[in-house]
Amino acid sequence: MTTPSDHTTPSDSSARPGQVADAKTTAVLITGTSSGIGRAAALRLARRSDLTVYATARRTESIADLAAAGARVLALDVTDEASMAAAVQEVEAAHGFVGALVNNAGYGAYGTVEETDLDAVRRQFETNVFGLARMAQLVLPGMRRAGRGRIVNVGSMGGRLVFPVGGYYHASKYAVEALTDALRFEAAPFGVRVSLVEPGLIRTEFATTAAGNLAGQAAPSGPYAALNQAADQQMAQGYRSPLMSARPEAVARVIDHAVTNSRPRTRYVVTPAAKVLVHTRRLIGGRAFDAILRTQFRAA
Rank of each mutant, 00 (worst) to 15 (best):
P10T: 10
A100P: 13
R16N: 00
A41I: 10
A42F: 12
G191W: 01
A86H: 10
S156L: 03
E126G: 04
Q217D: 02
R265S: 03
N228G: 08
S5F: 03
G18I: 11
Q217H: 07
T209G: 08
E81F: 10
L101W: 06
S62H: 11
R298V: 14
G238I: 02
R47Y: 00
T31A: 01
R193G: 04
V129I: 07
G111S: 04
R72D: 10
L227I: 15
N103G: 03
A299S: 13
G99P: 10
V194G: 08
R48P: 02
T26K: 11
F130Q: 11
V73T: 12
A40I: 12
Y224E: 06
L76I: 09
G149R: 10
D232G: 13
R47M: 01
E90G: 01
M235T: 13
G159A: 10
P141M: 06
H95V: 01
V20Q: 14
N153R: 05
A171S: 15
P248M: 10
A75E: 15
A82L: 12
E61S: 15
A120C: 01
T3P: 00
A225L: 02
R247Y: 06
M84L: 02
G212Y: 06
T260M: 14
L161G: 00
V165K: 01
F130W: 15
L51M: 02
N103R: 07
G131W: 13
A87L: 12
S5K: 04
P10W: 11
H170Q: 09
E114K: 11
P189V: 04
R134E: 09
A230T: 11
A69I: 12
T26L: 08
A231G: 03
Y239S: 08
Y54R: 03
V259R: 00
V152H: 04
A67E: 11
T9A: 13
Y169L: 06
L283F: 12
R134P: 00
R298C: 00
A136G: 14
N153G: 03
E198M: 02
F185E: 09
L118M: 14
A46T: 06
P242T: 07
T180K: 03
V28F: 06
A246R: 09
A21S: 12
K173D: 02
T33F: 02
M157V: 15
A226K: 12
A105W: 08
R294H: 13
L293N: 14
G285M: 03
V129F: 05
A274S: 07
S241P: 10
V194F: 12
Q234V: 15
A231E: 00
A85S: 15
H257D: 14
